[in-house]
């Protein structure tokens, strides 16, 4: 059973050197005397997630809603495994597909095929699995002979087709996405949306962050409202 359960997740980002570099702090300290300076460690902490607890079960479609800096992306990165929370527990079961930055690991000097192999390898696929997926991925991109050209020669629209095709090629239990992905010109975009939708539909859990409430309402069954790192409300639709 795919599930995510979090208890009291806390994430702090240390900002090293910020205090000592700030002229204002230095001046303030000199004005208030030595007492403050003693306990002013050279470390500022930003609490990005503050005591988040939630249960996500199979079939859940979670929409993360909140202002800039409310902790949506941080939460997604924690779920993707990039950041480990500094305290609290996080239990996850199921394969995870992170669509947070799908062009990660792409290389401008390498050609389309090489990039596909690289990205598939980073996703943990072996050579045999990659060989099996390759025809389907290359066909979907509609890039044809361009795939044997270095990626830097692609237009930005063509460029995005490659990671998109790879990211949506493998089904996963849990899909994490920061804003809805859209690529390509009108005709391609339609095809891409259908492919993305199919992948999301087959996922057991979706966690999608967006500022677009309508989008979340049409794709999700539960909305998590985040404010300053707190989970202030869970709205069931």
């Amino acid at each position: 059973m795919a599930h995510i359960s979090a208890k009291n997740l806390i994430v702090d980002f240390p900002i090293y050197g910020a205090a000592s570099r700030s002229l204002k702090n230095t001046v303030l300290h000199s004005a208030t005397g030595g007492s403050l300076a003693k306990d002013s460690a050279d470390k500022v902490v930003v609490r990005a997630l503050n005591g988040l607890s939630f249960e996500i079960g199979e079939g859940d479609r979670i929409g993360l809603l909140g202002h800039n800096g409310s902790g949506k992306s941080t939460l997604l990165r924690v779920l993707a495994g990039g950041y480990e929370p500094i305290s609290g527990t996080l239990d996850m079961e199921g394969s995870v597909a992170s669509m947070l930055s799908i062009s990660l690991g792409m290389e401008g000097e390498a050609n389309g095929y090489e990039n596909i192999v690289m990205m598939c390898t980073l996703m943990g696929l072996g050579p045999k699995e990659i060989d099996k997926l390759m025809p389907e991925i290359t066909e979907f991109t509609e890039l044809g002979e361009f795939l044997s050209m270095p990626l830097r020669t692609y237009s930005s629209g063509m460029h995005m087709r490659v990671p998109f095709a790879v990211a949506t090629a493998v089904k996963a239990d849990i899909v994490l996405m920061d804003e809805w992905l859209s690529v390509g010109d009108e005709a391609f975009s339609k095809k891409a949306q259908a492919r993305l939708q199919e992948m999301l539909d087959s996922a057991k859990i979706l966690v999608l962050a967006s500022h677009d409430r309508k989008l979340l309402e049409s794709n999700c069954n539960r909305l998590f409202h985040l404010e300053h790192g707190h989970l202030v409300e869970i709205e069931n639709l």
């Binding site: 993707a80 992170s98 947070l100 690991g105 980073l122």
Partner: peptide, 9 residues
Amino acid sequence: EGHIKQTRL
């Protein structure tokens, strides 16, 4: 940096 922050490798 990019890989470390985004993936669980």
